[in-house]
Amino acid sequence: MMEDQPVYKKDWVLTGPAFDKLLACLDSDLNEAGRKLLDIRRKLQKFFECNRCPDPDELVDMTIDRGARRIDEGVEVRELPSYLTQIARFVLKEHWASPQKKMDEIEDEGSGSPLVAPTVDDARNAKEEQEERLECLEKCSGKLVPVERQRVIDYYYEQGRAKIDKRKRMAADLRITLGNLRVRMHRTRERLEECILDCLSNKKRI
């Protein structure tokens, strides 16, 4: 009796077989499929973030779940990244159109009122937090190899107009393009940011 009952879209949950079908659409090799899915996930995250969504992860999960459901339902997908992009745009529209979103906007406007000035305690807390963050960064940078750590210092050190020339020299020293250097520094920065978040959450636990 139960099996004959229809499953509504909003009640659908991602199952193991459905997820496997999703991965199979990306690559026959399971590891490569997993890597590609993570790549899509990062891009969708940025997409929602750039469209002023306060919780991009939730919308990314919704997009991937919806794509997996459609594949599980038998829809033939040739290019999964493009297909998920289309779904993401629908999800975004739904998000903007949802009553909850409107409610959030009203709340945001209230909390962001310029009439509420930051207190002395807020400033003190912010300063303490920043000091902790700097301590964590010191610790995290210690995990980098010395050359890489020095590169981070050189790259982000403020030198006004000489910054561009300095970065060009750094790229030339590494025999890579300036664009590649920027990407490389972004990757290092991502690692440091993750490490800082872990470090701060550990401090809060203590």
């Binding site: 973030e49 002023r52 969504c53 920043q130 963050r133 010191e138 981070v152 210092i153 790259y155 050190y157």
Partner: peptide, 22 residues
Amino acid sequence: TSAARRERVKSSRALMEFADMH
């Protein structure tokens, strides 16, 4: 607009301070 981005701004501030200091 997101907590993650606000967090990144704080980390950037720490990174700039770290680089200038060293």
